[in-house]
């Protein structure tokens, strides 16, 4: 039964081998659960246009992960700091956007920039009050601080904004563009556009400005750059603020696309971590490509193997990559 399905599963012949393997795995799983029924066959008849669409959805959700992962990687690259509470800044960013929109009545896409500023300020406060004081000690203490910060941010958000889901309503709420058989929401496309613009601005900042040069210097040789007259403290503050601003932008974009509550931060953090590990710690192109790959792998796994496996497959990919390349796809060897 399964072999018949195989032939019309996917059009491009170069993917044939890949398909066959996916099918075998799928049938095996269904047999073990004793649920190999007729409709499972219909599942497998996914045409290539759906596949392209799936990849695009993966890329779209991947974009939000990319913003988060880039910020995380920036902070890691310059400060060698691992911030597990980075997703909380995304959550705070979404609520900042919500507050700005209700208070000032601005457009959601203008709120992205306002939220970036406000979240950056919060980021500075976090860096000054907590991470600054544990930096350079035992690395696990930093994780510990970020776990404490998760508790603090989650519960402050509940006390300030309530525990119920909220959403940010965009003026393009109802608009979508047809792409072949299925449609894609204008908001998704705008979000992708925003991410591209923000990333280009970021790359410009890092590559072309003096500040960016100082950041790169600090990230490569902290001690030496201090001797060269760079104020490391200021660079740290700026980097953390920049990372927080990216998370703030991601938060508002997330809020436009999904309902959000005080607990949304945890999951994107874990995914962002998986992404920077996959792409290579400290590598910004790695974070971008890793983010897109992760989003696509997750969606493709959900549509081919069955949704249950989406996390397991994403992490299996991560583990396999790390076993083959312990420093990640774009990480530097040695060190």
């Amino acid at each position: 039964m399964s072999l018949e399905v195989n032939s019309n599963f996917l059009a491009p012949p170069f993917l044939y081998f890949f398909n066959l393997r996916i099918n075998l795995l799928f049938i095996l799983v269904m047999n073990i659960r004793g649920k190999l029924t007729e409709y499972t066959v219909e599942f497998l008849m996914i045409d290539s246009s759906t596949l392209i669409l799936t990849i695009m959805w993966g890329a779209a959700i991947g974009c939000i992960y990319v913003l988060l992962a880039t910020g995380l990687n920036l902070i890691f690259g310059v400060m060698k700091l691992v911030n597990f509470a980075h997703g909380e800044l995304l959550m705070i960013g979404a609520y900042m956007g919500f507050t700005v929109i209700t208070a000032l009545g601005v457009n959601v896409y203008i709120a992205v920039f306002l939220s970036m500023g406000l979240t950056a300020l919060i980021g500075i406060a976090v860096e000054r009050l907590t991470f600054r004081r544990v930096l350079g000690a035992e690395k696990l203490n930093e994780i510990f601080v970020s776990l404490g910060l998760i508790l603090i941010f989650d519960n402050i958000a509940v006390l300030l904004w309530g525990d119920k889901s909220k959403r940010l309503i965009s003026p393009f709420e109802n608009m979508s563009i047809m792409l072949g058989e299925a449609s894609i929401r204008v908001d998704w496309l705008i979000a992708i556009l925003f991410v591209i613009v923000i990333l280009i601005a970021l790359l410009f900042l890092i590559k072309k400005t003096k500040l960016g040069m100082a950041m790169r210097a600090t990230s490569q040789k902290g001690q030496t750059s201090m001797l060269m007259g760079i104020n490391i403290e200021h660079i740290y503050i700026f980097t953390f603020a920049l990372g927080a601003a990216l998370a703030g932008a991601a938060g508002v974009l997330y809020g436009i696309i999904f309902p959000f509550n005080p607990y949304i931060g945890a999951l994107p953090t874990i995914k962002a971590f998986a992404i920077i590990i996959l792409g290579g710690l400290g590598s910004i192109p790695g974070a971008i490509i890793g983010g897109l790959l992760y989003g696509i792998a997750e969606q493709t796994a959900a549509i081919t193997l069955g949704s249950i496996w989406r996390d397991a497959v994403a992490f299996s990919v991560l583990i396999i990559v790390l076993v083959l390349r312990p420093e990640g796809l774009f990480g530097k060897r040695g060190e």
Binding site: K35, Y39, E42, F43, M45, I46, T50, L53, T54, W57, I61, A182, F258, I264, L267, Q299, T300, A302, I303, G306, S307, I308, R310, D311
Partner: peptide, 25 residues
Amino acid sequence: EIVAEVSYPLTTTTFQAELTTIKAA
């Protein structure tokens, strides 16, 4: 007639893949 049965892990936040599977049915 049950034409599709899809379950997903609790960590899921986007459902396009699941819904595409359902649409195909």
